[in-house]
Structure formats: structure tokens, C-alpha cells
Design a binder for these strands. Structure first.
Length: 766
DNA sequence: GGAGACTGCGTTTTT
DNA sequence: CGCAGTCTCC
């Protein structure tokens, strides 16, 4: 089969590159995954490398799975020998195989962010430090930041950080080492250190992995890049695919600079740009190109398509967030009438808090929707408890898990009893579990009972399937019973049942996977033990989906970040307001605005056919009504690509309690008429001419100021009528006396700054 | 030990 | 405003 026949010239050039370092600048929708998978298939097909010589790394499990599936689809090849996975998944694999060299127990467990935070809290407590003075979250941030830039506590000490923090950092690492646990950043750092230190191992892997392929390279952090370099050495070939314009994760350590560094350090002469877009219509792409053109620091890329221009982008301005949501509901109903599926429609927003208004409107309208974000499956408390039992089964000396569930469900073992046990264990230098037999007093019996649960389960590991073991654990631990008797425990019981399915599914998916390369030196575990072990690692590395009803046809609600990599026929990009998008916090950060613009670029390029933009004059946020200006990003789009819908209902109308009735064309005509015969909804409008307030500090709250004019009091949020501009909302008040001025958002006329002494303003509404 | 009041906080998030 | 996390009282 010809792998290459349906590729465009640039894609083909990328796929068939010789064995040299290469950087592929892959624009949104340009077939990035296709190039990656075809490259792998091609390398194998050409006999340039065997499956064992391939290492492909992604950020998410989903991306890794997709890559694997697609390779298998194009080439009936043994995917077994390949290392395809996430950075963390592959590090786990490496460290499991060489746990002794990495100075880790074979049962080392992986801490997710929650686990890490509780571990840090314990460290702070043990050091007798006040949590007020050292917030655990800040310390967590500090530790992860350090590790992700490759630094240990000893490296960080000279840099003027609070000595206490550095000490706690060291204490935390010591505690992890003692307990045999490893956090996410540690997986990477440990791997890098292992390869740095151990030359034999390093050479082994450098010779093995002839081809290293990296997805979303712009999202790699400093440590991940070091990891790649360590594995590639001088003999391996890195094939990095990324898009600097879609770098939106700087806040979590991503370093776009890695792209330039890679180019320089590897003397990359093969930079291939994939600019043909197969996803969106022309107008959408033009808008995206135009917007991102405002960023100064770019590698440079211009998307194009041979699909037609398609529809214009539609822009709606509503008086409030409620109106915005109502408008979206209307539009969605239109789409439904056209026969579109709900799952092909996405509502995107900058921050999660914005989902509520939409959820409310959609719920009321009876439209099915699905919100992304929030608690994932393996992060739920009941699942965490169940996993703690399983950890004890795998390793009874796991004191953290022991402490977590020894009294959950309640068994009459209180804090005092546990302290007693801890004292005994400490004196004997043993684990809590091992100390159970010698604990004195009345609690001895309760402890023994708990220990026997673990003992019995352990005895069954080899006789039961993993799913059966999980089921047995749920019964014996009393977890199911506990949640069954709880008032709203139904969901939790359901989740626990789902854990049994997850175990069964895990076994099925991994049954033909061989145990890893390195020969286990000591006490070979049974295959059942290994299965349990890897299921536990899986649970830490794969947080799982977050909602059960993923099957049904439903609208997709998510943040712009969460939408990266996805595409939809119709996209509603909402809340396009200064302060929100771009987010106000970003304005004070270096490069913050450019990152927000990249985010906007990502958002725009999610749409295949229809892109709807919207913003609201007022919005409830943190319990206060805020009056925001239209986002500068809207102004950065070429007017000719936009179909501007005039606000339905007049700007100030909602102040009088007027709500609803904003259906297409059915709203009161005040909006159009009062604005001096300007076009109303439905017709094309020219670009609003308004003078924009200086961007940057343009969101205010209603409570700020009030200003006395000759005839009335003016305050922010006040609806006013102007003879020429129609109805608007006071957005800002400044100056005093004869110089008193007000900035007023007149909707279609934009924001005007008016001298109160001169302007003829009439309060309306309230 | 657990339910209910109280406080404080409030981008973006994967592993 | 809505929540998560903490505190307090039975």
C-alpha cells in the first residue's frame, strides 16, 4: 500500500525526511497527527528502523492512543516493540524497568497532584511550620517548578529563595524516597538523572531509539526537552512537530523557546511548514491568520485552504451574559432545525466559571450538553479510597494508603489509636501494617480486623482476575456498603462499580503486552501481581474521563484550553470581553497578551464551518455585575469577514427588568430605531466606529463611583439615552466639575467618552 | 465522627 | 454568587 499517495507535498516531504533532526511547523488542522503516524509507518515500511527503534511521545494519553490506533490502521505492524506514550507514561516504563538503578522500590507508586499536595501538607506539619506562613499549594508550585526546570533542593538553595521552602523541598523529597513514591515531575527528573548517571543504560537507549518523534513540541518544558536530548544522544534523530502559534501552556511550564533551542542545538536545517488546512473554511482561516499576525514573536506561518470562503463569522453583542446565553440557545435550535448534530456544536469560553450561565440556559431549554473539566474519574474520593485498598494489597507497607483507609469506612479507629500505632511502628522501624500485631490496648482488635481484610485479599490475588479482585475488595472493605447507606451515595456506588469495569477493560487492553525489557533482578512477582501493579500506575497516570454520559448526542461546553486539538462544525466563542479574554491577569505578565492571542487563535481554528463570536455588556462575576468592553481581539479581526448582529433589545433595557423576547427579529425595534436608523439584526452592519477606551484597565464594577450631574446622579452600570447614539451603559466615570466625563458603551456605536457638561444624557431603566 | 455553619477566594491544566 | 475547605459543636 502506498502510504504517501494522499499526502500534500509538504506532508510528504516531512514523512520522507532522511535520518536528520527535523522541525515540523504544523498549523492547526494541517494534518499533524497524520504526518507523525505516517512517518512512523513509512520508516518501518522502508526498513529504516524496526519497531523497537521507535519512540513517540505525546502529552496526553488520548493523543498517544490515537497515534497507536492510526499506525495500526495504516500498517499491520507489530506496535509492541515501540515506545509510544506520554512523557510520564514512558518515564514510568523506564523507571519500572530500572527501578534498582534509579534507587526506587519495585512497587514505587505515583502521586497525582492531589496525593502530592497531601504529602506536602504532611511534610509541613512534620516540620512544625505554620500552614499560613507556608501555603501548601505555593510550596507545591515551587517544588514542581524547580523539578521541571531540572533542579533539586540542593540546586535551588543558592538562589535567594526562602530557606524554609528549600528545607521543606528537601524534606518532601526525603519523605517520598522513604515512602517509595514519585510525583509527576519526579518521574521525569529521576529518568533524566538515571540516564545522566548511568552510562551503560544511556548508551543502550541511545542506540536503541534511532527515531524519536515528539508531538506538540511547543508544549514541552525544560526538563522534557532535556529528557529528549538524553535519549537521542548524538545518534538518534528527533522529529519534532509543533506550532508556536498554539503555545498556550506557558503557565504550567511550557517553554516555546525549546523550538528555537532545538533548531540551534541540533543545527536543524529541515524545517517544514505545514500550512494547508483541511479543517476550516476560508473566512475562518483568514480571521485566524489576521489575528495571529498581531503577535510579534512568531516563527511565521500562514494557513490556507482550497475549500471556499464559507460563511462569514457572526458577531453578537448582548446586553448581558444571560442574553448571550439565550442567543446561543436560539442559534443552537436553528442548527438543530437544519439537522446538525449537537455534538458537532461547541460552546467555548475563557474560564470555567462562565459555563454556569450556559448550563442554566441549556438546561431550561431542554438541550443536552456536556461540560468538560472538573473532577475526573480516578480523582474522585471514593475511587481514591478504593485504590488505597488496592495499593495495600499490592504493598501492605504503604503507610499512606494505610492511614487513608484504616478507618474508612469507619471502624472505630480514631486519631489516638492511629497515633499509638504510629509510635509502635516508629519504635520498631517497621511499617504501620507490620506494627499492627504489636499495638497495645483496646484498639488492637480493630486494627487486627482491618489487617485481616488486607491479608485475605492478598491471599486471593493469584486466584482472581483483576476485576474480580477489585470486586472482592469493594465488598470486603465495606466501601460499597458504606456509600449505599449514604443519602446521595448512588453516584459513588456507581463509580465504584465502574472501577470494576475499568479493571476488566485494562486487562483486556494490555493482555498481550509483554513485561518490560529489563530482567527483574529479584523475587519475580506473579503475573497477577504485575497486573495489579500496572493497573495502579495506570490509575495515577490516566485520570480518566470525567463524565459518564459521553455516548449521547450533546452540545460540547469547554474552555478554550480544553478545546485544543478538537474541531467542530459550529463553534460559539463567547465572553469576548476585555478582562475576560484577554484575561485581566495576563496583561501584567510578560508575553501574557501574546499568549492570550494565541489562545484566541486556537479558539478560532476549532471551527470547521461556522464561527459565532459573542460578548456581553454586563456580566455577573464573583457576585458582582461587571461592565466589560468588547475584547480587543474582536477588533483585530478584519471587518469584512464579520457579519455583525446588532444587539437585540436595547442596551439599557435589562435594567428595567426586561428580559427574554430576544428571539430572531422578534425583539422590540428600539435597538435599531433608537440608534439613529442603523441596521438592526440580520442585516450587515459596518464596523462600529466607537472610540475604544485605552485598553488595559477597562473593566469596572458597579460599585466604583457615582457622579452628580446637573439633573441626576450617574453611576457605572446606569443605562442612558443619547440623542444621537441611542441607548448605552455607563462604563466609567472620570474627572470632576466642568471636566466630568463618562465613558458610555453604546453597543453598535462603540464606547464614547462624553463631557457631561455638554452631552445631553437622559437616564433610562433603573 | 459527622453534619452544618463559616470563611475566603475566584484563569487556563495534563500527567 | 458558588465552592471548597476549615472549624465547631453535638
Amino acid at each position: 500500500m502506498d502510504l504517501l499517495h494522499s499526502l500534500n507535498p509538504q506532508q510528504r516531504a516531512a514523512v520522507t525526511l532522511p535520518d536528520v533532526p527535523a522541525l515540523i511547523l504544523a498549523g492547526a488542522g494541517s494534518g499533524k497527527t497524520r504526518v507523525l503516524t505516517t512517518r512512523i509507518a513509512w520508516l518501518l515500511q522502508q526498513g529504516r528502523v524496526g519497531p523497537g527503534g521507535i519512540l513517540a511521545v505525546t502529552f496526553t494519553n488520548k493523543a498517544a492512543r490515537e497515534m497507536l490506533t492510526r499506525i495500526e490502521a495504516v500498517l499491520p505492524v507489530q506496535t509492541r516493540g515501540m515506545w509510544i506514550g506520554t512523557f510520564h507514561g514512558l518515564c514510568n516504563r523506564l523507571l519500572r524497568a530500572h527501578h534498582r538503578e534509579a534507587n526506587l522500590p519495585s512497587t514505587f507508586q505515583i502521586l497525582d497532584s492531589q496525593d502530592q499536595l497531601s504529602a506536602i501538607k504532611r511534610v509541613i506539619k512534620a516540620a512544625n511550620v505554620d500552614e499560613e506562613r507556608c501555603p501548601p499549594r505555593d510550596l507545591q508550585f515551587f517544588i514542581n517548578g524547580a523539578k521541571e526546570s531540572g533542579q533539586r533542593s540542593t540546586d535551588v538553595s543558592g538562589y535567594g529563595h526562602d530557606r524554609r521552602w528549600v528545607e521543606l523541598f528537601a524534606a518532601y523529597d526525603a519523605q517520598c524516597q522513604r515512602e517509595g513514591s514519585v510525583d509527576f515531575a519526579e518521574l521525569l527528573l529521576r529518568s533524566v538523572e538515571l540516564l545522566t548517571r548511568n552510562e551503560a543504560l544511556r548508551t543502550h537507549y541511545q542506540h536503541r531509539f534511532r527515531h524519536i518523534l515528539v508531538d506538540e513540541f511547543q508544549d514541552t518544558n525544560v526538563l522534557q526537552y532535556r529528557w529528549l536530548k538524553m535519549l537521542a544522544g548524538t545518534s538518534g534523530t528527533i522529529f519534532a512537530v509543533g506550532d508556536d502559534d498554539q503555545s498556550i501552556y506557558r503557565f504550567r511550564g511550557a517553554n516555546v523557546g525549546n523550538m528555537a533551542d532545538f533548531q540551534r542545538e541540533y543545527d536543524v536545517t529541515h524545517v517544514i511548514k505545514l500550512e494547508q488546512n483541511y479543517r476550516s473554511h476560508g473566512n475562518i482561516l483568514d480571521a485566524a491568520n489576521h489575528l495571529i499576525g498581531n503577535n510579534a514573536r512568531r516563527m511565521g506561518k500562514n494557513l490556507w485552504t482550497d475549500a471556499g470562503p464559507g460563511e462569514k463569522l457572526r458577531l453578537y453583542e448582548g446586553p448581558s451574559d444571560t442574553f448571550e446565553a439565550a442567543w446561543v440557545v436560539d442559534e443552537v435550535r436553528d442548527r438543530q432545525r437544519e439537522g446538525d448534530r449537537l455534538s458537532e456544536i461547541a460552546i467555548l469560553y475563557r474560564s470555567n466559571a462562565q459555563s454556569r450561565v450556559f448550563e442554566h440556559a441549556l438546561f431550561t431549554a431542554g438541550l443536552a450538553y456536556r461540560v468538560y473539566g472538573g473532577l475526573r474519574f480516578f480523582e474522585r474520593a471514593e475511587i481514591k479510597h478504593a485504590l488505597a485498598y488496592l495499593r495495600l494489597v499490592a504493598n501492605p507497607d504503604d503507610d499512606v494508603s494505610f492511614a487513608r483507609v484504616v478507618n474508612f469506612p469507619a471502624r472505630g479507629i480514631g486519631a489516638r489509636s492511629l497515633e499509638q500505632l504510629q509510635a509502635v511502628a516508629q519504635a520498631a522501624g517497621s511499617s504501620l501494617f507490620a506494627a499492627v500485631a504489636s499495638v497495645p490496648g483496646r484498639s488492637a482488635e480493630s486494627f487486627a480486623k482491618f489487617a485481616s481484610i488486607v491479608h485475605e485479599l492478598r491471599a486471593k490475588v493469584d486466584d482472581l482476575s483483576l476485576a474480580e479482585l477489585v470486586e472482592e475488595m469493594l465488598k470486603r472493605s465495606g466501601l460499597v456498603q458504606h456509600f449505599q447507606s449514604e443519602r446521595d451515595g448512588a453516584d459513588r456506588v456507581e463509580n465504584l462499580a465502574e472501577l470494576v469495569n475499568a479493571a476488566a477493560g485494562f486487562v483486556q487492553e494490555h493482555q498481550d503486552e509483554p513485561a518490560d525489557t529489563a530482567a527483574p533482578a529479584v523475587a519475580p512477582a506473579s503475573s497477577a501481581q504485575l497486573a495489579l501493579q500496572s493497573f495502579l500506575a495506570h490509575a495515577s497516570l490516566e485520570s480518566g474521563d470525567n463524565q459518564a454520559q459521553s455516548g449521547q448526542d450533546a452540545l460540547q461546553l469547554m474552555t478554550v484550553h480544553a478545546a485544543k486539538g478538537l474541531e467542530f462544525d459550529t463553534v460559539f466563542l463567547t465572553g469576548l470581553e476585555e478582562g475576560l479574554f484577554p484575561h485581566e491577569n495576563s496583561l501584567s505578565e510578560a508575553d501574557g497578551l501574546e499568549e492570550e492571542r494565541r489562545l484566541m487563535y486556537v479558539a478560532i481554528t476549532r471551527a470547521r464551518k461556522r464561527l459565532n463570536l459573542s460578548f456581553a455588556q454586563s456580566r455577573m462575576l464573583h457576585g458582582q455585575t461587571r461592565y466589560n468592553l468588547r475584547s480587543r481581539f474582536v477588533d483585530e479581526l478584519p471587518p469584512k469577514l464579520l457579519h455583525v448582529l446588532a444587539a437585540r433589545g436595547r442596551a439599557g433595557a435589562f435594567f428595567g427588568g426586561f428580559a427574554g423576547n430576544q428571539g430572531r427579529g422578534s425583539g422590540p425595534e428600539t435597538g435599531g430605531r433608537a440608534s439613529g436608523g442603523r441596521p438592526t439584526s440580520g442585516r450587515e452592519a459596518g464596523w462600529p466606529q466607537g472610540t475604544r477606551a485605552a485598553a488595559g484597565a477597562d473593566s469596572w464594577t458597579a460599585e466604583s463611583t457615582a457622579m452628580q450631574t446637573d439633573s441626576h446622579v450617574l453611576r457605572i452600570g446606569q443605562g442612558v439615552r443619547h440623542p444621537k447614539f441611542g441607548d448605552g451603559v455607563v462604563v466609567r466615570l472620570q474627572g470632576s466639575g466642568g471636566d466630568a466625563r463618562a465613558q458610555i458603551n453604546f453597543g453598535a456605536f462603540g464606547v464614547k467618552e462624553l463631557l457631561l457638561a455638554v452631552a445631553k444624557l437622559q437616564p433610562i431603566g433603573s
